[in-house]
């Protein structure tokens, strides 16, 4: 799970004071691509915790694929990948994120995904592949929840909430 940024409170204050927003296209991409992948990670972890069994290697590999996709999305949002990316045909704009937002995007989700990948990487190591233990599943779930919590916090801080 990603550690909180030291200057997190200051960044959120800046977002609020300066009324900084995240472009709709960025939220849309995040909630579409990251939303599906985080949901799948959450539910698969919850299932193995529910039955109190280790997660098989095949499922661990699927989780690695989800984290790879999430990393692709965050790279796209933070402009690490090129524009007109065929992986993201719906994302045609230059997000031009405010530095305060960018710093958060570059910290939380990538670090949470790295935490998950470190656990999964150990599991699917071709020399000694082994199932993911229940304790490690809990850590994966915590990291996935941390990314969701970040998305919720940021959406709240930018006052970009939707009421049904």
């Amino acid at each position: 799970m990603a550690n909180p940024l030291k200057e997190e409170a200051k960044l959120y204050k800046q977002i609020k004071d300066e009324n900084i927003k995240v472009p709709f296209e960025v939220w849309d991409l995040m909630y579409h691509r990251i939303g599906d992948a985080l949901t799948a990670i959450n539910l698969s972890c919850e299932y193995y915790l529910l039955i109190n069994q280790d997660m098989p290697i095949d499922q661990a590999k699927r989780i690695e694929n989800y984290t790879r996709l999430i990393k692709l999305v965050t790279d796209k949002i933070t402009m690490k990948s090129s524009q007109n990316d065929p992986n993201f045909p719906e994302f045609k704009i230059n997000p031009d994120l405010h530095p305060a937002i960018l710093e958060m995007f570059m910290h939380y989700i990538p670090n949470d995904m790295n935490c998950i990948n470190l656990i999964i990487g150990d599991t699917i190591d071709p020399i000694d592949p082994h199932p993911v233990s229940v304790e490690k599943i809990k850590r994966i779930l915590n990291s996935a929840r941390s990314s969701k919590a970040f998305m919720d916090r940021l959406r709240e801080a930018t006052s970009q909430t939707v009421k049904f």
Partner: peptide
């Protein structure tokens, strides 16, 4: 969805 009579909505990312 609301107009069509859906009972409720939940948003992704979902937790159990």
């Amino acid at each position: 969805a609301k107009a069509l009579g859906a009972l409720r909505y939940v948003t992704k990312p979902l937790e159990l």
